[in-house]
Design a protein around this nucleic acid. Structure first.
Lengths: 326, 326
DNA sequence: CTGAAAGCGCTAACAC
DNA sequence: GTGTTAGCGCTTTCAG
């Protein structure tokens, strides 16, 4: 005996399939008593509507595609969770696509899942924005953590918090800063670098050494420790927490200790920033809110409302990896 | 102008829709020259098959449901990625469900997505196995990291590696051990506890203090540091890496340093175990292989082959958080 | 090798 | 309020 359908319910109850259908999708159109019966029988038979069929008939699938470059990057899980939570409120499920950090794959992927989803939430830090726009042309979609003109987006602006972090270090007495840049093609990396540069520009007594660009992985940070030491910077602003953790490990390899010998600031406030000892001073990204807003924005796009881009601000989280210069 | 369908292609080419359909699903049944034309036109029009429609016709949706209790737990992202990679090889996408650690939600969720997926891969550490079995009755599914009789499963057996870890500590001179147990309802927690108990039983000169059960979160580990100190154990076997990281933080709060004052071993080898300084001695779970095997097993279930349960062994990763007793 | 036609489960006019 | 009908995009007999 197979999955129940509206027909099996209709038959069992001696009503028409439409009535059963309506009992679910437009309950107000069905007499209360009948509706009750239908719902009861549905439960009894373990019926759940077939979204695929519904999708065919209505043109909406009840699925959002969520594309991330690397679910393994601790930045994304909280975001994914927030998206799925927000979508779930409206009875929508999430098709997760990990694009494996390959730009080429992304374009195929979008093409492939296009017909199965109502819309797309896309985190694609590296794809050139021209290609991103082509790829998403005609697809209801929202871009995350990257401002692309002409594409609805939700981004996190860390500039102010980053400047605050730098101020804090400055007040502690630091004058020589290293900026560890993230991937050259990444929008957020550019933004963050600009924020730090902008901050330094106003202060003639500050020296800013730029390092990188780096692939923003732990190993890259670790490998870069040598450059940090050579730079003689006493304070380091890393592109993200992963890099920051790497730098700390690398410095430790060389016998240094953080924050005793050098101060480190990360960015994003991912889980590992909070679980390391000492915990990492960093800029928190409101990932949960980011996810919610992304869903909200996609909903706006889908319903034809004019989407309003969203900018959320990061906040400085003072923790254990900064101190006065050695 | 909307999504291309087999009809738009058929019309453009003056062939029938069946031919177009076959060009994709049974290419061998179509004359090569025609097939080429169809494929070319499809590319030109940006055609991608509508899985929902195909699913309606064939009964298979090309979607696996993947249910995890908490995507935010660093154990899962690498697993999710492996699953999606393995599934993608066979042109199958992943419907991700984060059950939010609520058992009640899980049962509804399964019911709800049942019609949209070909099968389910389920990580549900806490649901009583009776209910798990009911929930999954009649649903092609694979259970992860939990052995349930009568349900196909892939698990990771850390017993040997845990014993090895204990041996290693023993050889370093430790005689008083603390075992921090994981959630009472979690299968893996029971298994791991048994492994450690079994190891200790053979050694009369070893004292084993059991702590917990704990919710396996960072904060729980941190809060438990007091108990650790009271226990006077010099070596700690934590349920998982998150707890281990918490313990280290908690000990640090009390002025202790790891591994100088106490040795800590985690379990799972999640990202944060590798990125902390010093890096965490732990038992690595072959998450990637686990994901692949889960997909493989589900495929077996779906094709009616008799599924062979899979057990993968963890391996001890000696790193920076163990040393001789103080 | 190709076309016609029926049907997957559901919804949405349109009657009654 | 409820039933009838057509059709969403695709696959799959069955003919030819």
């Amino acid at each position: 005996m197979r999955q129940a359908t509206i027909y099996s319910i209709a038959e069992a109850l001696g009503v028409s399939a439409s009535t059963v259908s309506r009992a679910f999708s437009r309950p107000d159109l069905v007499k209360a008593s009948v509706r009750e019966e239908v719902l009861a029988k549905a439960r009894e038979l373990g019926y759940a509507p077939n979204r695929a069929a519904r999708g065919l008939a209505t043109g909406r699938t009840g699925l959002y595609g969520l594309m991330v470059p690397d679910i393994t990057n601790p930045f994304f899980p909280p975001f994914v969770r927030a998206v799925q939570l927000a979508a779930g409120d409206r009875d929508t499920d999430i098709l997760l696509i990990d694009s494996e950090r390959s730009a080429a794959a992304e374009e195929d992927l979008v093409q492939r899942i296009r017909p199965q989803v109502d819309g797309l939430i896309v985190a694609s830090p590296r794809l050139p924005s021209g290609r991103l726009k082509e790829m998403l042309a005609g697809v209801p979609s929202v871009v995350v953590n990257r401002a692309v003109r002409g594409l609805p987006h939700v981004v996190c602006d860390n500039s102010a918090a980053l400047a605050q972090a730098a101020d804090h270090l400055y007040e502690l007495g630091h004058r020589r800063f290293a900026l560890m840049r993230g991937p050259a093609a990444a929008w957020a990396a550019t933004r963050r670098a600009e924020a730090v540069r902008g901050w330094a520009k106003g202060r003639p007594d500050v020296a800013l050494v730029e390092l990188g660009p780096f692939e923003a992985q732990f190993v890259d940070g670790r490998a870069a420790a040598g450059e940090i030491v050579e730079s003689e910077a006493t304070a380091v602003l890393a592109f993200d927490d992963l890099m920051a953790a790497g730098v700390i490990a690398g410095l430790n390899d060389r016998g240094e200790s953080v924050p005793r010998d050098r101060s480190i600031v990360g960015c994003d406030d991912v889980l590992l920033a909070r679980t390391m000892t000492p915990s990492l001073t960093t800029v928190t990204a409101p990932l949960t809110e980011l996810g919610r807003q992304a869903v909200e924005l996609l909903r706006a796009v889908l319903s034809g409302r004019t989407p309003r881009n969203v900018t959320l601000a990061g906040a400085l989280a003072l923790r254990g990896t900064v101190g006065p210069p050695h």
